[in-house]
């Protein structure tokens, strides 16, 4: 969907993930170019993490369909041994929940060393040196000392930075960053995002940035895909999406950002209703919450291109 000249780093076609009868991801297609950062946003439970976990092949008890080519290699069809060799080296993930991503009984430094030696042919001593260097890069003070602490001895934001260091350890081609900075204060967040941006610009790493922070999306990403109830409902270049959002859900999303200068105790605008049961909807899944819904919405709208590289699935946009 981006320019035909650049071959995508990642090309996802018709990705489907079902847990039993519930389709958490329902046939989504998108791609990521080398050196591109794609933002993935949308309501809690809409399938963002599931999409990333499916690409990492880390979902058990799920039925998965579609294809995902990373540098031409189809990930979803690889056997476990082949996938293990790629995980961490070609595609790495920063997990949403740093608490569960770290082993509670292993010192944090050793966990990074583990990630390094799994894919790189280096000595433990060299790995230790690099691990300390990574800890310093993510802004951990006194990294030599912090190398040998356990996760519970670190703050929430420090654990998150260890998880980031692990994901970056082997310089993956594609990084799936699932809420990578939610536990960080804004100054440390700025520092981490700058680090990621450096890898994107200098190494051509591709990134899928999953986040609820639309300020981070605004500052970092090249394009944004908006998900609702398992489907991509809008996709466009970042400036374009913020300037002219077309899908009613995207409108609602942008409106519910709390503003710094809004009054205390003033209710924040929300999108009325809830996403629950949307996967059972026969027509447009957003229709029950949509102010613009009409008869046409009983038929599910497909994602179509309106304007250059601006895709939307809604019957009621021009």
């Amino acid at each position: 969907m981006t320019g035909e000249a650049s071959t995508p780093l990642l090309k996802v076609e018709n990705l489907l993930v079902a847990f039993g009868r519930a389709k958490a991801v329902d046939g989504i297609s998108f791609d990521v170019a080398p050196g591109e950062m794609l933002g993935l946003v949308g309501e809690s439970g809409c399938g963002k993490s599931t999409t990333a976990l499916a690409l990492m092949r880390l979902l058990r008890d799920a039925e998965i369909g579609g294809t995902a080519h990373l540098n031409g290699v189809e990930l979803l069809g690889l056997d476990e041994a082949a996938m293990r060799a790629r995980r961490g080296a070609d595609v790495a993930m920063i997990f949403q929940d740093p608490g569960t991503a770290l082993h509670p009984m292993i010192r944090v430094g050793d966990q990074i060393v583990e990630a390094l030696t799994a894919h790189l042919n280096i000595s433990r001593r060299e790995a230790r040196k690099r691990a300390i260097d990574l800890l310093r890069k993510v802004g951990i003070a006194a990294p030599e000392e912090r190398f040998s602490v356990y996760p519970h001895e670190m703050s929430g934001g420090m654990c998150q930075r260890v998880v980031i260091a692990m994901a970056m350890a082997c310089a993956p081609r594609l990084l799936l960053a699932d809420e990578p900075t939610t536990a960080l204060d804004v100054t440390v967040q700025a520092q981490i995002l700058e680090l990621l941006q450096g890898l994107v610009r200098e190494e051509g790493m591709g990134v899928i940035l999953i986040t609820h922070d639309l300020g981070v999306v605004a500052g970092m990403t090249d394009r944004v895909a908006v998900m609702y109830a398992g489907a991509i409902v809008e996709m466009a270049a970042t400036e374009e999406l913020f300037a002219t959002p077309l899908h009613p859900y995207t409108h609602g999303l942008l409106r519910s950002i709390p503003q710094l200068d809004s009054g205390w105790d003033e209710p924040v605008p929300t999108i009325p209703g809830s996403v629950q049961g949307a996967e059972l909807q026969t027509g447009c899944r957003f229709a029950p919450r949509c102010a613009k819904a009409s008869d046409a919405c009983r038929t599910p709208p497909a994602l179509r291109e309106i304007g250059e590289n601006h895709f939307v699935s809604c019957w009621n946009t021009p």
């Binding site: 809690s44 939610t182 609820h212 639309l214 999303l253 519910s256 709390p258 924040v268 999108i271």
Partner: peptide, 16 residues
């Protein structure tokens, strides 16, 4: 950090 894991719309609901 009660709302940092939530999207803006649900975050707004929890704040309210």
């Amino acid at each position: 950090e009660p709302v940092s894991a939530l999207d803006v719309s649900i975050r707004a609901q929890i704040m309210n």
